[in-house]
């Protein structure tokens, strides 16, 4: 897929891009993966039903 023109020495000096570092960190991903549905699905959803008005 890639053409390797850089020498091994030069390549290892290159900084790892931020996105690659994020994807290489399973615990950060775990945090994101649990937070997203907890906030958007669970908490938001439960807030909707507990704030329903009482039938007149």
């Amino acid at each position: 897929m890639s053409d390797d023109k850089a020498t091994p020495g030069r390549e290892s000096e290159e900084r790892i891009p931020a996105m690659q570092s994020i994807l290489d960190n399973p615990f950060l991903l775990l945090f994101i993966g649990v937070t997203m549905p907890t906030v958007f699905y669970l908490i938001w959803g439960i807030m909707e039903i507990v704030t329903l008005p009482v039938a007149p």
Binding site: L29, I32, G33, M36, P37, F40, Y41, G45, E48, I49, L52
Partner: peptide, 18 residues
């Protein structure tokens, strides 16, 4: 990781209150 689990809502689409 970000979005797949939000689809739990598929089951709540014709429920009262949301």
């Amino acid at each position: 990781i970000l979005f797949l689990q939000l689809a739990c809502a598929h089951h709540i689409l014709v429920d009262p209150g949301v």
